[in-house]
Design a protein around this nucleic acid. Sequence first.
DNA 1: GAGTGGTCTAGACCACTGA
DNA 2: CAGTGGTCTAGACCACTCT
Lengths: 237, 237
Amino acid sequence: MDTIKPIHMIIRDYLLSNIQSGEYQPGGRLPTENELTKKFQTSRSPVRQALDTLRIQGVIYRHPGRGTFVSPNPGGSDAWTLTSIRDIIEQGFQTHFQLHDFTSGRTSEELDRIFRVKKGKFTRIRGVRLLKDQPLYFLNVFLPQKIGRKLRVIDIADCPVIVALEKKLNIRLKKCIQNISATLADPPLARILKVPNQSPLLSIERFYFTDNEETIEWASSFCRPDLYKYRSVLSRG
Amino acid sequence: MDTIKPIHMIIRDYLLSNIQSGEYQPGGRLPTENELTKKFQTSRSPVRQALDTLRIQGVIYRHPGRGTFVSPNPGGSDAWTLTSIRDIIEQGFQTHFQLHDFTSGRTSEELDRIFRVKKGKFTRIRGVRLLKDQPLYFLNVFLPQKIGRKLRVIDIADCPVIVALEKKLNIRLKKCIQNISATLADPPLARILKVPNQSPLLSIERFYFTDNEETIEWASSFCRPDLYKYRSVLSRG
DNA sequence: GAGTGGTCTAGACCACTGA
DNA sequence: CAGTGGTCTAGACCACTCT
């Protein structure tokens, strides 16, 4: 926490926490821009910036002449809504990670290609993420070894890997690209996830980037489709 | 086209088309805010609004002090990047739809729940979307019958259903919520998609909403994971 | 008519990067 | 140092909605 938070983020977080707490009900009306400028003693710009962020994430919707409203069903059902890196982090804190192994010194041409290096060495972290002792997904994370060796098992025991990178090593993740596909559970995966052999699995691959578009982490996960549904919101460009 | 396009959309489309045409190369630098304000004879606000939109969609990234750059690999590989409703529409135009059937008068309690009505009647459209004669996914669309009966087969022959709704019926779609999961191909689906029985399929369910958060269309699709990969971009909230 | 959000103007100060 | 993007101010006009 070396920098102060801009006003638009303060307003965004204020609204978000009031929506999550139920202060503003789904379908209910939010304060108008005018009211927010008065409440936070600011101008329209930061207020609109906060509201734009929430609208893009599908949290609210707005209608000229009528007002701003909370979108129905923000996360009510069993689906995980992931619209920003914040959501991935929050998901990590709401679930529990069971570490399988944590090894260093691995090499592969595929990893060289992903991280755009030559004959690199990498650290691999594998484990299962659980919700109430139910396995949600199997996770397979690769980091450049020069970064991975600075991490200890204790660092990733109670927080997501990306949070450990940010807090311990002060690496700021700026962007994440996801590829989503479907696959079948082979016998080891089936055993780990407690599903029948040859079950369908949701396969999510994530590339994490820093400020400079450097790839800093590659994660591949295999999710139980009955327990883990992926939800996203698209709006008008 | 009854309304004029705001400046920020003009700028956004200008940049987008120059990126897609290769005028601005991946990793290359875009004009600065200052240059864009001069080029379009406008102030910073609409310029920033255009750039913010593109950044959220992962098309560009920005760095204080350095400039604005085109993100690498915007859609280069075989994955479909869907970050807005525009992308879904564009995907529809880049592929071909083979209609299977188009029926009206269907009822079901599940549909009543989805469209928040009581004992409603619905129109169902089913078919396959192809790329170069290869089946990408099987599509199953439901609309309220009062809307569906205004559509003719010809209306959806050469454009996506959502475009037909907008052009023919002047219904403006504002938001789309997607649920993504994985499932297995049953024999009929396997035959249609030309994959082995019990193959894994990516299952994408989409709810389309109007201005007023009214559900106007429900679409369920089953995608071949080898030909259809779903990609999305997450950024810092 | 009063209020809403959408758009836009014309300034300002800041931290940061590169030469 | 001049230039970049990030943030913010204090206005303005518009189309739309509600009553």
